[in-house]
Design a protein around this nucleic acid. Structure first.
Lengths: 142, 142
DNA sequence: GTAATTGCAAATACTTTGCCACGTA
DNA sequence: TACGTGGCAAAGTATTTGCAATTAC
């Protein structure tokens, strides 16, 4: 299954004109393996990418991937930006500890879809999506 | 009404040990007047604060205010952090244009409270709160 | 062969801190 | 008077860009 997903992702990239480079491949695999938002630094230092390519390369790749909708850039309150894969039909909300910074995907279904529809209709915004995060102090830190 | 709110805010600050300084006063008034999240830069450059105090001062004040729960720091996807007043019983969600960066408070009631309760109970997180933002391209930019 | 991609280094942007002068209590 | 605050300047951290060398197609 991951095999298939990787191939699909690369195909989607190539369809938009990106070249199939080692850096792109390893970046996508890294994002897929971790399945959680990661910072540029984390990504560039991850095993698959260290000694594989420069941080600037990862940065530019993430930029392009975000433009074509393969990844998304998240805020999450840290000074550094987070990036996550945007897999079709797999929206995620997060629970974040403000002390230790742990990021936990929320299992419950997202209760925002209806409001999102309403906003789309009433405001005329295009390409609408949302980001929902819960912040608090996790039991371990409390 | 704003008069009263300002006084209340300053009292809350003083109660935690902060001194009543011109910078603090002007910062609170500025936040109250704008009623939307603002960056450190915006705040420091706003009429009430320019020539009134240094950006570092605004930064340190916002830090303290955030610690004692008068303001909150938001991500909002920009490189710069945003700060907003935390008025009791007045949670806000936002609609943000990814092109021009405009930030619009959402009028509809927030649909997340129930899930927030559920998370509070099931996970044992303390001081739980959430942040919900919708991103898209506004009609003017589209 | 040609144009996209990369690495390296330098430039930006925003945030954060040190230190001494100053103002509030 | 004493200690919290403020200004200025410098340091820190994350992001972004320029350009020549390299690589995919």
């Amino acid at each position: 299954m991951p095999e298939k997903t990787i191939t699909e992702l690369i195909d989607r990239c190539r369809a938009t004109g990106l070249r199939r480079t080692k850096a792109l491949e390893q970046l996508l695999i890294t994002l897929l393996e971790h399945a959680r938002p990661m910072t540029l630094n984390e990504l560039a230092q991850s095993v698959r990418l260290t000694d594989q390519c420069d941080k600037a390369t990862v940065f530019r790749l993430l930029q392009r991937l975000t433009t074509i909708g393969i990844t998304r850039r998240l805020g999450l309150h840290e000074r550094a930006a987070y990036f996550t894969l945007l897999l079709p039909g797999r929206h995620q909300d997060y629970l974040i500890c403000t002390e230790c910074g742990s990021i936990e995907p929320i299992k419950a279904p997202c209760p925002v879809h209806h409001l999102e529809e309403e906003i789309r209709e009433k405001t005329g915004y295009k390409n609408l999506y949302h980001e929902l995060e819960f912040f608090g102090i996790c039991p371990a830190c409390a």
